[in-house]
Design a protein around this nucleic acid. Structure first.
Lengths: 109, 109
DNA sequence: AGATGATGCAACCACAGAGTTGCATCATCC
DNA sequence: GGATGATGCAACTCTGTGGTTGCATCATCT
């Protein structure tokens, strides 16, 4: 459990490590939208966006919703919050170790 | 501010989106270490690790420390915590919008 | 001073993935 | 039923980068 980062974390970071995907997420943050609709606002092809949405979906950051003949996507904030919680735990752990080292160093003077 | 993700966020996610870099961070989480030392534990070359450390450093996740003739690195938890805080804010915003939509939908029945 | 171990730099290979174009398909609305 | 707009799939290009090897260099410890 303290070994390597879980796959889901890796997937989330991988998904979040792309400029275009952030643009998509930001756009979805203002309202659900289909790949075609997003292609209208962003400077990339619909197909490119579709791929990005697939990545985001498999990372659990986005959810597909059928409405009429189009497939809209919705940004899922819970996934981000969950990731944030995990990051915070890890970061706190590191800093705890740092504090311990500092304490020991000061005690040795 | 609500436009695109800040460069630092992108850099952090880019840095965190690699299996090997996580291994390095986890190793550093147990104690400071030099690139050469890390090369002993991990299944990659010292040079590869050096590159990864450079990436981690420019993302603010790691800090170099000269000790004798070796250059050790220390994992910085504060950067992770900061990132976590930002993620949480964004996620909460999305969920707030979702909740609003749900409320409206229910009111329309 | 000199051997040694550590770091730094450069060229190179290979694969992943971001992006494109083109076409097929499938549901929807008239 | 048929036109239409949306999605799905496939092949291809090209850049980024994780990884390697080889050599140069530089500080350190004896």
């Amino acid at each position: 459990m303290t070994a390597t980062a879980p796959d889901t974390l890796l997937a989330v970071f991988g998904a979040l490590a792309d400029e275009t995907r952030w643009s998509i997420l930001v756009a979805l943050g203002e309202g659900d939208a289909s790949a075609s609709a997003l292609a209208g606002r962003l400077p990339v092809t619909r197909q490119a966006i579709a791929k990005h949405l697939a990545v985001l979906q498999s990372a659990g950051l986005v959810e597909p919703i059928r409405v009429g003949r189009e497939l809209r996507f919705r940004a899922l904030g819970s996934a981000l919050s969950e990731t944030a919680r995990r990051l915070d735990v890890i970061g706190a752990e590191w800093d705890r170790r740092l504090a311990a080292i500092k304490r020991i160093a000061e005690a040795m003077e």
